[in-house]
Simulated scan of single mutants.
Amino acid sequence: MDKGKSVMGSGRRWAIEFTDNSTSHSSRDIPDPPGFTRASQDQDDSAVSKQKKDAEANWKSQKAWEVAQAPVKNLFMMAFMMWMAGSTVHLFSIGITFSALLQPLNALRGVGKVFEPFKDNRVDLLTPKLVYILLNLAGLGLGIWKLNTLGLLPTNVSDWVSSLPPAQEVEYSGGGIPL
């Protein structure tokens, strides 16, 4: 292109003059290019957005199930740690047992927060929440079982002797009279 020549004067085939100052033209007056219709674009956009929403709902559902099944890993690890701690009462076994009790309790208390990122009208969260709750209840049961194994739960009659009333005396022995 030579210097000093205008764009329109250069003889280009696809040149557009932007110096039209008339306000009578609007974007509606300009015809759509061949093969383009606004209705098809709207339909394509709605189909693409629907596909995106469906993909997002599927992803949220999949992630919700992953979160719901996460306590299974914790169950096996905690069971192994309890087995390694033994059945005698000492600091390590008590610490592991109370950890096994507190983790499921905290998880059960925060079920709503755990599944908050996956909240959507198209995603069913009831079943993953129930699975999550059941697995955490199984973990809680494992901790209670370990408490019983350690003998820290009052399950025998002898554990409640202090709360029983004293037995009534049936006989009295006073000894003999000294001579």
Rank of each mutant, 00 (worst) to 15 (best):
A68M: 12
P178A: 11
I30M: 13
R13S: 05
P178N: 12
W59P: 07
L135G: 04
P154C: 00
F98M: 12
S22F: 02
Q41M: 13
R122P: 08
M84V: 01
N74P: 00
P31E: 14
W160T: 00
G175D: 11
L147Q: 06
E66F: 13
K60T: 09
K63L: 13
R12N: 06
Q41I: 14
S61T: 15
K53L: 13
V131M: 10
E17W: 08
G174E: 14
N136M: 05
G139W: 02
W83F: 11
P154S: 02
G4A: 02
T23N: 11
S158R: 04
D2Y: 00
D44L: 11
N58T: 15
L75D: 01
E171P: 00
V123H: 07
G35H: 04
A64C: 13
D29Q: 12
V111A: 11
A100C: 09
I16K: 13
S61M: 14
P128E: 07
G151S: 03
S10V: 00
W59T: 15
V161T: 02
Q41C: 11
S10R: 02
A39Q: 11
L91I: 05
S93D: 03
L152G: 03
K73P: 01
V7G: 06
K53I: 04
F115T: 04
A85S: 13
V7Y: 03
K50M: 13
E66P: 07
R28V: 06
V67L: 15
T88L: 08
D20Q: 08
V131Q: 09
A57W: 11
T149R: 10
E171A: 04
T19D: 14
M78P: 01
P71N: 10
A167K: 07
H90R: 07
K113V: 01
D124A: 11
W14Q: 02
N74H: 04
N136R: 03
K146Q: 15
R12M: 09
S27E: 13
K146A: 06
M77Y: 00
R28C: 06
S87K: 14
L135S: 07
T19V: 08
W59Q: 15
L164D: 01
L150F: 04
A79Y: 01
I177Q: 12
V7H: 05
V114K: 14
K146R: 12
A100H: 03
A47Y: 08
S99W: 08
D44W: 06
